[in-house]
Nucleic acid binder design. Structure first.
Lengths: 211, 211
DNA sequence: TAGATTGTTAATCGATTAACAATC
DNA sequence: TAGATTGTTAATCGATTAACAATC
């Protein structure tokens, strides 16, 4: 339906707006102007108004934005109310840490199982989930309508496993391996979390005294 | 010494160049043109040449770039050969996963200790490190010339702890808590790893079929 | 030498900022 | 109503791409 092109620069800011607006709700704030929000976030008021107006006019002249309804609009834009099902593939230290601690439900996602060589179960913030042998992953994806795969595997296994998951029906990948996945042909979105890139950016900024 | 302004857009691409160039070395490639690298990385040759030329002329007309010397230049630019010392503050599941698995040495960083309520020790890829009680962190930073603090704490403790660390002499923060740290006044670089922002970007792109 | 590919300048494109009429 | 602040258009700024002379 939405046809208008939205730049990646704008998209990358949306989750940050969502996070700030949620913090304000927690603090009991119920109204904010683009000017005040800009100051909090280190942006310009103009940019915030431009960004939000890519998706609709959520504010009110002379008043600003109602924080709760802005939160709801942002959740809607980001697709956080769709209850997508996710699995985690590779349950080493990183996979285990994510499984145990991360609040998937705050992004509208339900983590329903893990896959690894061994099986067992892991407690999450929302109760335990089962860990199944990796061999069963394809049929599990199909029979449970799993949309998201979280890949926390050793680098060497990343790309072949990713392809396999996509062939089984996965619609989006959250990639924690240190390599870029080359899945252009498949046409599904991938979000990379490259720890080493992030740490090296910090290193650069420390060298150059960039703040 | 380097005075020329380098945009954040360029900086963010440098670690990715470094990663690709390292991969090529592992594959035994020793020469690459901007055109070939651009195809691998999904960029334009022009952009790669512009980016690299912010820092110097590392290529050779008619030949391209020598992969090994490009790797060395990139390491130098990113400050990966300075052997910075780091500590990790908060050794829950996420801190433990990073400590156990992450190759800090590949970014020229030495993880020398952890801090938490309890003490003990954790094995890393380069041998065990000690975990000390958080109370000792200030004096430890001072007496060991620690430059980087990795913060893997609950959100509530993030900002007060960060301020404390900076006052003790920390020169850069790698932040894994879900909140932005507001340390403008202190003038030190912070690199945020916001898992939820990343996952919500994936969610958005899945909704909009962005690939 | 001829071919290839860089470094770099100029042209284009896109994103951010400024301005202001609309309106709550 | 007067004041505040949006939504939106226009102006500016910066980043990307194209082009090409330099040169290996």
């Amino acid at each position: 339906m939405e046809k208008k092109y939205i730049s990646q620069a704008v998209i990358k800011r949306m989750p940050r707006y969502y996070r700030y607006v949620n913090e304000m709700i927690d603090m009991g704030i119920n109204r904010i102007s683009s000017k005040a929000l800009a100051e909090k976030m280190g942006l310009t008021a103009s940019q915030i108004r431009q960004d939000l107006n890519c998706f609709g006019g959520f504010g009110q002249q002379g008043y600003g934005y109602n924080v709760e309804s802005l939160r709801d609009e942002l959740a809607q834009i980001l697709g956080l109310n769709k209850d997508k099902k996710a699995i985690i593939v590779g349950v080493g230290n990183m996979g285990r840490a994510l499984t145990k601690n991360f609040h998937f439900e705050r992004s509208g996602i339900e983590l329903i199982a893990g896959f690894d060589l061994d099986f067992g179960s892991i407690d999450t913030v929302n109760g335990p989930i089962a860990i199944f042998p990796i061999d069963n992953v394809d049929s599990y994806i199909e029979s449970n309508d799993v949309e998201i795969a979280i890949i926390t595997l050793p680098k060497e296994l990343a790309s072949t496993t990713a392809e396999r998951l996509v062939r089984a029906g996965i619609k989006g990948i959250w990639n924690f391996t240190s390599s870029d996945l080359h899945l252009q042909g498949y046409g599904i979105p991938i979000e990379n979390v490259h720890f080493s890139d992030s740490l090296r950016t910090l290193s650069y900024n420390m060298e150059k005294n960039n703040v």
